[in-house]
């Protein structure tokens, strides 16, 4: 991925927009998402933000097929994501990095990343068990690509390390790398810098920017770190209590009174710019 740093590729033609259209999700009597709509333009970084319990993760689970929408549609080009199973969604190029790391701790970084190649490879039980030449060749070829991607996320020297012994920040990078290994057209990043220190956060933000410019793919981002969202996102959708309360450019969203109220509560006279000052605004106590 050396091309990464050279040119800002124009948006790829094979990347359709993501259209979330009137999506509602219910768990029994609880409505987690209610009539949420937004569009992710091809090749953009689109952030979904909101206070805790706003429905951001539910939205992600709908996008990746883990939850079924009770109403509404999610379209990715011709594909209806709301009607597909998670592994099928992965198969059409939608990848997701999990917020709470969902890697196999006992396996090496390389093995975890190779899982990302699952839908791109074919070796079945028999071919793998008997080590048929085609399975070995396939593994080798994809192993090379995996090494490239690891290099890109500065994990090149940790390929053989079991994931369980890596630092938290590195594990988060492995999450992102694994998602990239699926060669996605749409990348879903669930709080990629949650729990990271300032330096790790900067590195991750830089990596996300590079991913976009190198691959030209769309990225949907759920994030609490407002500083990061505001500097990184092309467009922001704000959720609160399962409803969309704002949608626009970072600047627009930042000055939206609804958003300020959702984040800081009503009644208090607090300078709106605080919301974007880079503090994770949801630590206990900041919300009255």
């Amino acid at each position: 991925m050396t091309a990464a740093r050279e040119v800002d590729e124009p948006t790829r033609s094979d990347i359709p927009p993501v259209e979330v259209d009137g999506v509602s999700v219910r768990f029994g009597a609880i409505t987690a998402l209610s009539d949420v709509s937004f569009t992710v333009a091809p090749g953009t970084i689109h952030a979904v933000i909101g206070p805790n319990g706003a429905g951001k993760s539910t939205m992600f689970n709908v996008l990746s097929g883990v939850y079924q929408a009770a109403e509404g549609q999610v379209r990715f080009g011709d594909a209806r994501l709301d009607r597909m199973r998670p592994y099928q969604i992965a198969g059409i190029g939608v990848a997701r990095a999990f917020q709470n790391i969902a890697l196999s701790g006992t396996q090496s970084v390389a093995e975890n990343l190779m899982l990302g190649r699952h839908h791109l490879t074919k070796a079945g039980f028999i071919a793998a068990g008997l080590r048929l030449p085609r399975a070995t060749r396939e593994g080798k070829r994809h192993g090379e690509r995996v090494a490239e991607i690891a290099e890109f996320l500065e994990l090149g020297d940790k390929l053989q390390t079991p994931v369980g012994v890596l630092s938290y920040g590195d594990q988060k990078r492995v999450e992102v790398a694994r998602a990239l290994c699926t060669e996605p057209r749409l990348l879903l990043l669930d709080e990629p810098v949650a729990g990271m220190n300032a330096e790790e956060t900067t590195r991750m933000a830089e990596a996300i920017r590079e991913i976009r410019s190198a691959l030209g793919i769309s990225i949907v981002l759920v994030e609490h770190d407002m500083g990061m969202v505001m500097s990184l996102a092309d467009r922001v959708t704000v959720l609160d209590f399962g409803r969309r309360i704002a949608d626009g450019t970072p600047a627009e969203v930042q000055s939206d009174p609804e958003v300020i109220r959702a984040y800081l509560g009503s009644g208090d006279e607090i300078n709106p710019s605080d919301a974007a000052a880079g503090h994770p605004s949801e630590t206990p106590g900041t919300r009255p």
Partner: peptide, 28 residues
């Protein structure tokens, strides 16, 4: 051999997290 290759990785991941496995493209 099985465990060191594609199906084995899929199986080990679905042990650790079925959701992660399915989102990564494994038909659980």
């Amino acid at each position: 051999n099985l465990l060191r290759s594609r199906p084995g990785r899929a199986l080990q991941t679905l042990r650790d997290s079925e959701v992660a496995a399915s989102v990564m493209g494994v038909d659980v």
